[in-house]
């Protein structure tokens, strides 16, 4: 996703568009070409993330298209109040958080993005996008051009070029159905969508058909689509690389009644804790049940 992000920015710069990338001293290698070719559009602000966002607010209020970039916690948490000010002033900054969930795996908890869905979607005026693959990243970045307020973009380090073939239907603010089915509704977001697809395919083999809603936009949250798709389902599963932000968004939309008779709600998420042990991402995700086998088993059990 990062290379899709850089490529998209460079393409636009080549076409003569005016935009600026501010980084908090992060992006070695990834931004080298952009910086070489467009030195006037690239600023390493330094290890001063709060000021990076404030500067972006000032530039955006003067009409500039400006992206701020750092590792997710420094882009989204260190700067939370500054992003809130961007929201209050409706300054159209584009804050990019790199590395969701356990992406920085052996790096440890300081670098994890466990809570950003809850933190960022809690802010008024903001648009939050969470692409599932590289092509979604490109498309969402393009569509953000039409959004007049601030936006937060969460990018995964572990992404595929294309996880599905329904990119043409992508529209900011609308859930994207990437698989059709009648028994189970899976709601997911970000690169972990890959796991949702794997689990759904295995369930299909057992005759359990799954609909997958990919929430590439987390705010505004397309609750209408979630409610419609939930109708008549035997189970609703939420799959996310976050400590429950998506599950909460879904459950708010479904409060009251949802699904068919005896419908089960299952949340696959990261635990709400700082890991005492770290390892490679796959190992860490498997330990918390974010693995195709485990998801398949749990959903199967729920509908049988």
């Amino acid at each position: 996703m990062r290379s899709a992000f850089v490529t998209e920015l460079m393409e636009r710069l080549k076409y003569g568009e005016e935009l600026y990338l501010l980084t908090g001293d992060v992006g070695w290698n990834a931004f080298d070409k952009l910086r070489e070719q467009f030195p006037k559009n690239f600023y390493n602000i330094g290890l001063a993330e709060q000021s990076m966002v404030l500067i972006a607010i000032g530039m955006a209020l003067k009409g500039k298209e400006v992206y701020t970039y750092s590792i997710l916690p420094f882009s989204a948490y260190r700067t939370f109040e500054q992003i809130r000010l961007a929201c209050y002033n409706n300054a159209p900054i584009r804050a990019v958080g790199m590395g969701v969930g356990y992406d920085y795996d052996i790096g440890g908890c300081t670098h994890f993005g466990l809570e950003d869905i809850q933190a960022m979607t809690s802010l008024p005026n903001i648009t939050v996008v969470s692409p599932a693959d590289s092509r979604e990243t490109t498309m969402l970045l393009r569509q953000l051009k039409g959004i007049k307020g601030p936006a937060y973009i969460r990018l995964s380090k572990n992404s595929e070029p294309e996880l599905h073939n329904r990119h043409d239907n992508i529209k900011i603010g609308q859930a994207l159905r990437i698989m059709d089915g009648k028994d189970v509704l899976i709601v997911t977001t970000g690169a972990i969508t890959k796991l949702a697809i794997e689990a759904a395919r295995r369930l299909e083999e057992d005759g359990i058909s799954c609909e997958i809603l990919n929430m590439h936009t987390l705010k505004p949250f397309d609750g209408d689509s979630v409610r419609k798709s939930a109708g008549g389902k035997r189970a609703i599963a939420v799959i996310e690389e976050n400590n429950g932000g998506l599950a909460k968004l879904v459950s708010i939309e479904l409060s009251g009644s949802y699904g068919g008779p005896n419908c089960r709600f299952i949340s696959f998420r990261l635990p709400d804790e700082f890991n005492k042990e770290v390892g490679r991402r796959d190992w860490m995700l498997e330990r918390v049940g974010l693995k195709a086998d485990a998801v398949y088993n749990k959903i199967k059990l729920a509908v049988e």
Partner: peptide, 10 residues
């Protein structure tokens, strides 16, 4: 001040 810096840069 940070917002002012951004505006001055712009």
């Amino acid at each position: 001040l940070g917002i002012g810096v951004g505006m001055a840069m712009a």
